[in-house]
Amino acid sequence: MSSKDPLSAALDRIADPSGGAGLIASGRAAPPRLADGTADVILDVTGLDDAERAALETQVKAELGRVPGVSRVRVALTAAKRERRLIAVGSGKGGVGKSTLAANLAVALARSGFKVGLVDADIYGPSQPRLMHAEEAKPVAVDKQLVPVETDYGVPMLSMGQLVPSGQAIAWRGPMAASALGQLVDARWDDAEILILDLPPGTGDVQLSMIQKHRPAGALIVSTPQDLALMDATRAIDLFNKANVPVIGLVENMAGYICPHCGEASDPFGTGGAEAAAQGLGLPFLGRVPLAIGIRTASDAGTPPAAGEGPEAEPFRAIATRIAAWLNPSPPGGF
């Protein structure tokens, strides 16, 4: 059917809600077909909310219904499946600040315009409910699928810490823990385009099951500058490499302490270790987060520093900027 056909011409009189072009010109609609007085049209509603979809469908029916020879209009709505990318935040060992980094990275990405969800995949030691001030929030299930809880920071989240009593040990073997993680990842995340996965430390069953089933788009590794932590971080990197999951880079946490009384800087865990390790492994160094009392107190209070405007927010925002560049490289090559 040519572009001069009256049905196509009618659709091109309707402006695409996402731009000024007509529906045929923008690719929003396919050229309609007319048979026995019935006009059939396929309308792509990707990127439109429910109200916009309904309004556009009504407009299309009205415009086509005015074309001579049309007695009935049928509209088929289609939408491209939203691509959701999983970013795993891992470490070789516990106690390096992985969960704090994951929470603040999710908040910083959300503040920069991404639609982000947070999965507390640390099944045995869930801490995201405290970090995100969501300890009292309880997810519900709809059609046997969990619905993430909303937080104060624009990041919906799910955690085993919201499903079991506080302080109760989760003494599950690998297959049961992996099944629970699957329910968190496969929840009703709606329009979330990025899921941040706060993984358990180490390289065990839960990590392997997650990688095999859910295929993260990339992983970032958190370590302190200490040699012992870096040895374990290298093992985590090796796990992702063997599974063909791109390692986005390394973050150095607890990377220096400034005394709030005298202002003197010290490095209780050493300095520059993660940056040197990244260079040696041929990986990007994503940045360092200091050992700061403000970060600790804000985290304990359930107010991620990345949600504020203080100096404690800057390291997390800088790392989020580099992750965003990796997700949407422009120019190609990311960093």
Rank of each mutant, 00 (worst) to 15 (best):
M231P: 09
I293A: 15
A108C: 02
L199Q: 09
R322T: 02
C262A: 02
G65N: 06
M231E: 12
D198P: 09
L158Q: 06
G202D: 04
G65V: 01
I248N: 01
I237S: 08
F285G: 09
G161F: 06
V222A: 08
R53E: 10
P290N: 10
A30S: 03
G65C: 04
A229S: 15
A80Y: 06
R66D: 12
R72P: 09
S71A: 15
G37E: 05
P17F: 03
A187M: 09
Q162K: 03
A325K: 10
A88L: 13
A180G: 15
A29H: 03
I211W: 07
K98R: 05
D36N: 07
A110L: 01
A306R: 01
S159H: 06
I293G: 12
V289F: 11
A180Q: 13
Q168F: 05
M210E: 11
M1W: 07
G95D: 12
D152N: 14
G280W: 07
T224F: 11
H214Q: 13
P201M: 11
M160R: 04
I123C: 06
F335R: 07
L86C: 09
V67I: 08
L118V: 05
I237K: 05
A187N: 10
V41Y: 03
Q183L: 14
L131H: 09
G27P: 02
P268S: 13
Y257S: 11
W326V: 02
A169K: 07
L109W: 08
R130Q: 13
E57K: 04
P139W: 05
I293V: 13
V119Y: 05
L283E: 01
Q279I: 00
V75Q: 06
T224A: 12
L283N: 03
A217R: 12
Q168N: 14
V147R: 03
S71D: 15
A102W: 00
R111S: 08
Q145E: 04
G20F: 00
G310A: 04
D198E: 11
A110P: 05
T224P: 10
D50T: 09
P305Q: 10
D191H: 09
L181W: 09
W326S: 02
R66E: 14
R53W: 00
W189Y: 02
A255E: 02
W172P: 15
R296Q: 14
P305A: 12
G249K: 07
A39Q: 00
M160L: 08
D36T: 03
K213R: 15
D143Y: 00
N253Y: 03
L7P: 12
A10N: 02
N104L: 11
G218Y: 10
V70P: 02
G310Y: 00
S71P: 03
A25C: 06
G202I: 00
G92H: 06
P68M: 04
L250S: 00
K213E: 14
T297N: 13
L7E: 13
D190W: 07
E83Y: 04
D267I: 05
S179K: 15
E275G: 15
R28I: 01
V119Q: 02
L11K: 00
A318T: 14
G333N: 08
M176Q: 13
G161D: 06
D152S: 14
I170C: 12
D232H: 06
Q145I: 04
A106V: 06
